[in-house]
């Protein structure tokens, strides 16, 4: 186990964490501002990936594909908000869970109907493919580095948007007291649509970026959705900062655990047993992390009251 391997895996974990952050940011924003639990967030991730794959197939341009993913997911998000989600803000969480679960069924089967059951592929563009040499002589895929960079830039942009712009002020005010800002003349329902579409666009971007590493297929959003839930439970629901910290924690724990736990067990057990026990335990590691965080802080690291 060399130093270079560790660094490589840390970078992988960072890349995974940054992707999770793009997913979790939208979820936590929507919950923080509108009080809505949205299971269909993973479907927006899928919409982004499919839009990117379709546009890349037509035009061959990766940049256009990314723009398409943002636009398609934002449009799908806005459409769903206006037709369905809007009616759910005053309902209890059970209704929200059911209605958004129904949306998943509609999105998944609708996508299967449009694109078929076979996975699509989205190629990494030539200018982002191949390895780069980092300090200490590490060879690392350029595309993954680009994902980390894009994720960090988008994350910084989001913090700037929330902290410094007029719409950010309105979002934060909406979190604190929705009646009051409505009384001050902010069109609250338009604000909600914008926030929902923003979260959707981030999920769609994440879907497109990951779609170039993995295959683009129906149901791809659901494992990520549940990880994003773990992230915001750890970080504290409603907190963007919590989502960032939680995402990096989960990304690093999952990646490093998957690589190093089997090796750790190999020091003590037979190779076959070590591999299977290590893999089983590694797959549970982030949930154990979540349970541990909840034991100490039931409302997450940066959460207020639930």
């Amino acid at each position: 186990m060399s130093f270079i391997l560790i660094l490589e895996q840390v970078l992988n974990g960072l890349q995974f964490g940054v992707m999770l952050f793009l997913m979790a940011a939208g979820l936590t924003l929507v919950f923080g501002v509108m009080g809505l639990i949205n299971l269909a967030h993973g479907s927006l991730y899928m919409v982004g990936a499919f839009a990117a794959a379709a546009v890349a197939g037509l035009t061959g341009s990766f940049l256009l594909a990314l723009i398409a993913s943002l636009a398609a997911a934002a449009a799908a998000g806005a459409l769903v908000e206006v037709t369905v989600i809007r009616r759910l803000y005053d309902r209890d969480h059970l209704d929200q869970v059911l209605a958004t679960f129904a949306l998943i069924l509609i999105f998944s089967e609708g996508t299967r109907w449009l694109f078929g059951s076979f996975p699509l592929f989205l190629d990494v563009p030539a200018y982002l493919s191949g390895p780069v040499t980092l300090p200490f002589g590490i060879q690392y895929p350029l595309y993954r580095l680009a994902i980390i960079a894009i994720g960090l830039v988008v994350g910084a942009g989001l913090f700037w948007l929330i902290a410094r712009t007029r719409i950010g002020v309105q979002i934060r005010a909406g979190e604190a007291d929705r009646e009051m800002i409505a009384a001050l003349g902010v069109d609250i329902s338009k604000l909600y649509t914008v926030v929902f579409a923003l979260g959707a666009a981030l999920a769609g971007l994440a879907g497109a970026l990951v779609g170039a590493i993995q295959s683009v297929q129906v149901g791809m959003g659901e494992p990520v959705l549940i990880l994003a839930f773990v992230v915001i439970v750890i970080g504290g629901i409603g907190s963007i900062k919590g989502a960032l910290v939680g995402a990096l924690l989960v990304g690093l724990t999952d990646t490093l655990g998957g690589v190093f736990l089997p090796r750790l067990f190999a020091l003590m057990l037979e190779p076959a047993d070590a591999a299977s026990l290590g893999a089983s335990l590694a797959s549970m590691l982030i949930y154990i992390l979540m349970a541990a965080v909840l034991l100490v802080r039931p409302s997450g690291l940066f959460g207020g009251s639930a």
């Binding site: 919950f31 639990i37 969480h93 869970v97 549940i226 839930f229 773990v230 915001i232 439970v233 629901i237 299977s276 893999a279 089983s280 797959s283 549970m284 949930y287 154990i288 979540m290 349970a291 909840l294 034991l295 039931p298 409302s299 997450g300 639930a306």
Partner: peptide, 29 residues
Amino acid sequence: LSLRTSGVYFIMITLAFCQMLYYFAISWS
């Protein structure tokens, strides 16, 4: 573990524990 929390946290945590067992079953050859 889950009942220490309530509301949305409870929904997400029960979901997460279920998913944990799911991945455990997948990797339990």
